[in-house]
Design a protein around this nucleic acid. Structure first.
Lengths: 265, 265
DNA sequence: ACAGATTTTGCGTGTATTGAAAAATACCCG
DNA sequence: CGGGTATTTTTCAATACACGCAAAATCTGT
C-alpha cells in the first residue's frame, strides 16, 4: 500500500533523488556488506570513479561514518554509523520492523498479537494488533506484566542463562493468578527449557483463566533477544492439537522480524 | 591555513568534503538525536532550507535510512541505518571480544557493565550488559559522556600522555554535575595518576549523585587503549571496603579482553 | 631500484543541487 | 463549516558544486 493520501502528487517526476547523497549511502551499504574494502574495490562495487569514491569516503570519515584502517589500507563502517543506527530501535523502529509480520499473523489467524520488551524485570507491551474477534484482551500498549506467568515473559527469557533468569525472577513463590500459574522458579525454568526445545513459549491460562498465549523471541543483529511476540486467544480456540502448528507459525513470524533486524541465525 | 577565499557568502569546500553528503549525514545525526522531528524542525536544526532538507530526507527515505511516519508527520531513523550501523560491531570485533567477559562480570557481581570507546573528546558507550537489580542506569548504547567525570573516561585516558590528556580535556573548569565532580585538569590528572597505580579508575559520584563506577582500560595487540570497561552501581553497594576487590575484578575482566585482542603485556 | 598498482590532488566543465517562491495540503479555532 | 496560519511538496532558473580526467604522490612486491 503506497501513501496515496497526497492527492497533490500529480506529476510523475521522481522528486527527491539527490545523486551525491545516494552515492554516499551506497558506499556505506557496500562497506557494511563486504569483507575486503580497499578504495578501488569499493569504487568498483559502487561503480564510481576512484576519485569520486575517495572524496565521498573522506567525507564519511570526517563525520565518523567510515573509518580508515591505516595499517591495512582498508575502509570500514565507523562508530557514528553505529550510533545513528542504534537510535533506530529506541525510536520505535522495533515496532516498525515487527508490525508487518504482526499484521500478517492477525490476518491469517485472526487473534490478537502483541509485542513486548524487557524493562527491569517486567515485560512491557509496546505494540498490538487486535484480532477481529469480539472477545477483548486485557493488555494495552504500555501495560506491564510479570515475566513468570506470561508468554511474552517466557519468550523474553529464552535467550538468557539460567542464572540470569533466576535473578530476574526473584526467589518465589510467585503470586498465583490462576491455579495453573507456575509459582516456583524451578517450574518456570523447566517450562523455559521446553520452550527452548520447541522454539516457542506457552502461557497456559497462567495469568488469566481461559486465556492461552503463544510467544516467540525476537533477536537483534547480534542474536540478543530484544523483544517477544505473542498470540493471545481464548483457550477454546487454542486446543492442544493446534498448539504446535500455531507455535511454529508465531515462531516463524518472530524469526522474520529477527531477520529484518539482521539476525542471520 | 586558508589561502584562497571565495568572495560571497558561501563557504569554500575543503579537500574531500562533499557538501551534499555532509548535509545528508548531518540530517541523519539530527534524526538520531532528537525525539520530535518534523521537517521544519529538522531544517532548523541542520540549518538547511526546508526544500533542501525535504529532498535529502526523501533520498534517505528511498534508501531506507530514514522513515516517515505518515500519521504523525514525523521523521525517524530507518531500518537500513540500523543494518548498516550494526556492521560496525562485526567489523572491529571489539564488542565480540568484550561481551563474554562483560557477561561473566554481570553474572558474578550483578551490576550493570558498560563498554566505551573514545570519540573526539568524549566517551561513547558501545555495549552494555544490564544487571538485574531494580535500579536502572541512565546510559544507553550510543550515548555520549564527558571524559572528566566518568569511570570509562578516566580509563580511556589512562594510556595517554599528560599532554594529550590535557588537550582532550580542555582548559576547565569543568561543569560540576555533583559536588564531588573534579572540575580542574589538575585534580583530574592526579586521579588518573592514582588510577594508573591501582590499575583501575574510579568515578566516585562525580557524574550522578549516588552512583559509583569502576573502570579499567582495554588494550589492543599493540598495547594502545582502545576501549574501557566499567561497572556502575549505587554507591551503597560499592563501599570503600569493597572498592579494591571490585577494582581488581573489573581490571581482570578488561585484561582478559585485552588478551583476546592479542595484548601480551 | 624499477615497474605496476593504488591512492590523492588539481582543475575545467557541465549539470546536479539549490533556495525562493508558489502551490498544495494539513492544522486550528471560532 | 470557513477562513487564517503553519507546514509540506513542487516548480524553476542560476550557479556553486561535484564530477571525472589525468597527473602526482604513495605504496608493493621482486
Amino acid at each position: 500500500m503506497e501513501n496515496k493520501r497526497r492527492p497533490g502528487r500529480t506529476r510523475s517526476t521522481e522528486v527527491g533523488e539527490v545523486r551525491t547523497l545516494e552515492r554516499g549511502l551506497h558506499l556505506l551499504e557496500a562497506l557494511s556488506e563486504a569483507e575486503t574494502l580497499s578504495l578501488s574495490e569499493l569504487a568498483r562495487r559502487t561503480e564510481l570513479s576512484p576519485s569520486t569514491a575517495y572524496r565521498l569516503l573522506e567525507t564519511l570519515r570526517k563525520r565518523g561514518f567510515a573509518d580508515w584502517d591505516e595499517d591495512r589500507g582498508l575502509w570500514k563502517v565507523g562508530l557514528r554509523a553505529y550510533q545513528v543506527g542504534s537510535a533506530f530501535l529506541t525510536r520505535g523502529g522495533l515496532v516498525d520492523a515487527a508490525m508487518p509480520e504482526m499484521e500478517k499473523l492477525v490476518d491469517e489467524l485472526n487473534e490478537t498479537v502483541n509485542l513486548a520488551v524487557l524493562d527491569g524485570n517486567e515485560a512491557v507491551y509496546i505494540a498490538q494488533v487486535e484480532g477481529r474477534q469480539l472477545i477483548r484482551m486485557f493488555t494495552r500498549i504500555g501495560a506491564r506484566a510479570p515475566l513468570y506467568c506470561t508468554g511474552v515473559g517466557k519468550a523474553l527469557l529464552m535467550g538468557h542463562s539460567e542464572a540470569e533468569t533466576r535473578r530476574m525472577l526473584g526467589a518465589g513463590p510467585f503470586r498465583a493468578f490462576t491455579d495453573k500459574t507456575l509459582t516456583s522458579p524451578e517450574a518456570f525454568l523447566s517450562a523455559i527449557g521446553e520452550a527452548q526445545k520447541r522454539g516457542f513459549a506457552l502461557d497456559n491460562e497462567e495469568r488469566e483463566e481461559g486465556v492461552r498465549c503463544i510467544a516467540a523471541p525476537v533477536r537483534d543483529n547480534r542474536g540478543k533477544v530484544v523483544a517477544s511476540m505473542s498470540l493471545s486467544a481464548p483457550a477454546s480456540r487454542v486446543p492442544d492439537e493446534r498448539l504446535d502448528g500455531l507455535g511454529q507459525r508465531v515462531r516463524r513470524a518472530a524469526d522474520a522480524v529477527s531477520a529484518r533486524l539482521g539476525w542471520a541465525g
